[in-house]
């Protein structure tokens, strides 16, 4: 890994120059007095996806309000490489664990990355502490598809193997459809199409029999698609997802919700070293959700307010554990059986 992947380091130094006085006495006995004033400078956030994408929009909306509680700005740095792996490697390897550096990830797919292939750092060296929203996976067909309901799909899947478009193999929605196959005996062949845009296209153009994806993106696709099943406890968007039933209701399964969950993560070392700073982050994080400005900004950015789902360390830990467990169950299918013929 190149040691050069740190475009925001200079911003750190820039901020340090701007607060030269602070820097000058950083090593002095007054240090603790200054530390109590966290944050003194802007907070860097590493984003594992592209600028302008869904996570970016979400981050901009959330931090546009959060910054008012911290009185500093957030400076995002985007590292979309290798399904987010690059971002995590940069975050863990190159960023100071000082609570001034956060990561804003999508817990579902990114935790599944680790199931498929472990990163170079210790997985316990970071944790998620602030879940912003959760977006359940769903099954959908193109508007012109001959399949009208999930039962049509299951019935057809028992006769022949159906091709299923998915954004990528290691994705909560992919797990959902594998679980459906296991439950019903229908045969599904997952075809990774690299990204939500292509996954919607796969279903709409009819190349795929149907597709699976996070439901927020499916709802945004409007009438070009029709949702037929949700991998959650309830269909929170109702008619916008064609009043599709949930997997657990319809098939009597007991699957945990298969969600993409956007959340802020932090170095564990930063929490150990600066518990006060971490507390400031946690407290202010939750204040954002109660601020009407956040709801306004979120709706303006065309977010589904129903999916806003504040969660702290505990909720994130539970989610991480669930997704890792279920990921392990389907690991061989997600990572490819070694050396098939």
């Amino acid at each position: 890994m190149s040691k050069t992947l740190k475009p925001t380091r200079r911003k750190f130094i820039k901020a340090a120059v701007a607060t030269a006085g602070v820097a000058a006495i950083a090593g002095s006995p007054f240090k603790s007095a200054f530390a109590a004033k966290f944050p003194e400078r802007n907070i860097n956030v590493i984003v594992p996806t592209r600028e302008g994408g869904g996570a970016d929009r979400n981050l901009r909306t959330f931090t546009s309000v959060w910054k008012n509680y911290l009185n500093v700005n957030f400076e995002p740095g985007y590292f979309p490489g290798a399904s987010g792996r690059v971002a995590y490697e940069v975050y863990m390897g190159k960023r100071e664990p000082d609570c001034y550096n956060l990561i804003f990830g999508n817990m579902g797919p990114e935790l599944l990355n680790w199931v498929v292939k472990k990163p170079t750092f210790d997985l316990n060296a970071y944790l998620y502490f602030g879940q912003v929203d959760t977006d359940p996976g769903c099954v959908f067909v193109g508007a012109k598809s001959k399949f009208k309901t999930i039962d049509d799909i299951v019935a057809a899947g028992k006769k022949r193997k159906l091709n299923v478009g998915t954004s990528r193999m290691a994705h909560p929605a992919s797990i959902g459809i594998l679980a459906l196959g296991e439950k019903t005996g229908a045969q599904f062949n997952l075809i990774p199409l690299s990204g939500g845009k292509n996954t919607v296209a796969g279903a709409v153009t009819g190349e795929m029999d149907f597709s699976v994806l996070t439901s927020g993106s499916v709802a945004a696709a409007g009438k070009a698609v029709r949702t037929v099943l949700i991998f959650d406890d309830k269909n929170k968007l109702g008619a916008r997802l064609n009043n599709a039933p949930t997997m657990n209701d319809h098939f009597g399964t007991k699957l945990p919700p298969l969600l993409s969950a956007r959340a802020f993560g932090i170095h564990r070392a930063a929490i150990d070293k600066y518990p006060d700073r971490f507390k400031v982050l946690q407290d202010t994080f939750f204040k954002v959700f109660k601020d009407p400005a956040f709801k306004m900004a979120y709706l303006k950015a065309k977010g589904d307010w129903e999916y806003v789902n504040p969660g702290g360390v505990k909720e994130c830990e539970k989610y991480s554990k669930d997704i890792a467990e279920i990921g392990e169950r389907y690991k061989s299918l997600l990572s490819g059986a070694p050396k098939k013929k």
């Binding site: 890994m1 190149s2 992947l5 490489g81 490697e89 498929v116 990528r168 193999m169 990572s335 490819g336």
Partner: peptide, 14 residues
């Protein structure tokens, strides 16, 4: 593109 196995990357994540 299917199983995301790294190939010929000379060890560079980039």
């Amino acid at each position: 593109v299917v199983y995301a196995t790294p190939r010929g990357t000379l060890g560079f994540l980039e």
